[in-house]
């Protein structure tokens, strides 16, 4: 946790971002210690992976040194922070003790999920069950947030700044350099199928172990980002063209909401998966969670790759 303090002091933004990646990885391991494997998985792939890549992408387009802030401006923020901290210490001094099983948080709503998800939904990973079914509506909202961000980034920095008219077939010097690292290229080639396969495993195994649509989407995107970094943006664009991504961004949200509407049409409530299979509600739940996670996976991976393209394509 010293890394957070170091972030304050350092002025080199490149180092700040690297430290932030380390910090994310550390908090991910803290989450594992606290039994939150799904969360740890996500934090590691998002914080240490995708967020760092985006931030570096931004730095490449801007500057990497921070100016020294004027000293007189620091008093008020410091007071505000200390004030907030004081309220927090005040608030937590009465909070139920960490890890105590008799806390109210463990006794009201949560037990139903732990006991019920085996019989009502039939999915061993309770986090997946709560995420996709009991609180599935939150997850639809979450998918929409990601969708919003993608549209926002595309509106802001989508497409090249200048039209491609003066584009000559000259190649990027960096790309030329990359071509010399044949080992790197080979390893990427070997790793890529593994990463994508792992993403699919995470996608479809989310019911049983940690994982699910979101993590899978991010991993899938990370595989592509790696490919684009080593082989160049243009080649990545040929494999995964932007128009396909645009459809993917929308499609995932539509699948998710469509499953919800199907629930209504089949006589249940919105997002009621039980009615998807009239004979066996449990199977319906399975099917619903499967489809919904698929929607999340499609949207998230398409969004992450699109955002990466937007940042990477802006620089030229």
């Amino acid at each position: 946790m010293v890394t957070a303090l170091a972030v304050i002091r350092l002025r080199d933004l490149f180092a700040v971002i690297m430290l932030f990646g380390i910090y994310s990885l550390l908090s991910a391991s803290l989450f594992v210690v606290l039994d939150a494997v799904d969360v740890a998985f996500t934090e590691a792939s998002v914080g240490a992976g995708i967020a760092t890549v985006f931030m570096l992408g931004t730095l490449a387009l801007t500057k990497s040194r921070e100016k020294i802030p004027a000293a007189h401006k620091q008093v008020l923020p410091l007071l505000a922070v200390l004030g907030t901290g004081a309220v927090l210490i005040y608030g937590t001094s009465d909070i139920p003790y960490y890890g105590d099983p008799s806390n109210p948080i463990h006794h009201h709503v949560a037990p139903r999920y732990l006991e019920g998800s085996a019989t009502e939904i039939g999915v061993p990973n309770v986090v997946s069950a709560v995420l996709a079914s009991y609180r599935g509506y939150d997850t639809l909202g979450e998918t929409t947030v990601v969708f919003t961000a993608a549209i926002g980034v595309l509106v802001l920095i989508g497409g090249a700044r200048r039209p491609h008219s003066e584009e000559s077939p000259r190649s990027d010097p960096k790309q030329e350099l990359m071509k010399q690292y044949s080992i790197l290229r080979l390893i990427t080639k070997l790793l890529l199928p593994l990463i994508l396969l792992f993403a699919l495993y995470v996608q479809f195994h989310g019911d049983f172990g940690p994982g699910g649509g979101f993590q899978a989407g991010v991993i899938f995107a990370a595989g592509f980002v790696l490919y684009a970094l080593v082989y160049g943006l243009d080649q990545a664009r040929q494999i995964m063209p932007p128009w396909l991504l645009r459809i993917g961004i929308s499609l995932g949200v539509l699948i998710y909401a469509g499953v919800g509407v199907a629930g209504i049409l089949l006589g249940g409530a919105f997002l009621d998966y039980g009615v998807l299979d009239p004979h066996d509600p449990m199977h319906g739940q399975h099917l619903g969670i499967f489809l919904v996670e698929l929607g999340v996976g499609i949207t998230v991976s398409a969004v992450m790759i699109s955002i990466f393209y937007a940042f990477a394509g802006r620089g030229r």
Binding site: V87, L88, Y90, G91, T92, S93, D94, I95, P96, N103, P104, I105, H106, H107, H108, V109, A110
Partner: peptide, 29 residues
């Protein structure tokens, strides 16, 4: 903070369960 004190997120349920723990510093924070 509200969730840790009551174990619920539903608004009505929160309203029903809060008075019992209202006199804690956590709820005030």
């Amino acid at each position: 903070f509200l969730y840790v004190m009551t174990g619920t997120l539903n608004m009505l349920d929160l309203a029903a369960r809060l008075p019992a723990v209202a006199d804690t510093r956590t709820v005030r924070a």
